[in-house]
């Protein structure tokens, strides 16, 4: 199925979850924030939220640091 990932059209497996999407892209879940259709998804729900055709997914790495 097709989704939008950070504004780009991408294919992903039918029935994919956020967790599987991250895993397929070798992205560590603890390093990113995820938004689906303009709603931020709690990290604890990444393996429960199933993506659907046409979903708009945004992935952002954390921006942080310190002296």
């Amino acid at each position: 199925m097709m989704i939008s990932l950070n504004g780009q059209k991408e294919t992903c497996d039918d029935g994919a979850t956020i967790a599987s999407l991250l895993q397929n892209r070798n992205i560590r879940p603890e390093m990113v924030s995820v938004e689906v259709n303009d709603t931020i998804v709690e990290r604890g729900r990444y393996d429960q939220v199933r993506l659907e055709e046409g979903d708009s997914v945004e992935l952002l790495y954390f921006m942080g640091g310190g002296a």
């Binding site: 950070n6 504004g7 924030s33 952002l60 954390f62 942080g64």
Partner: peptide, 21 residues
């Protein structure tokens, strides 16, 4: 917010990155 750390608000980050795009 401390004298030795920062962490950007993820919600703002999404808003800004989408606006930039």
């Amino acid at each position: 917010p401390t004298p030795y750390s920062y962490f950007m608000d993820p919600k703002e980050q999404f808003t800004v990155m989408k606006e930039m795009r």
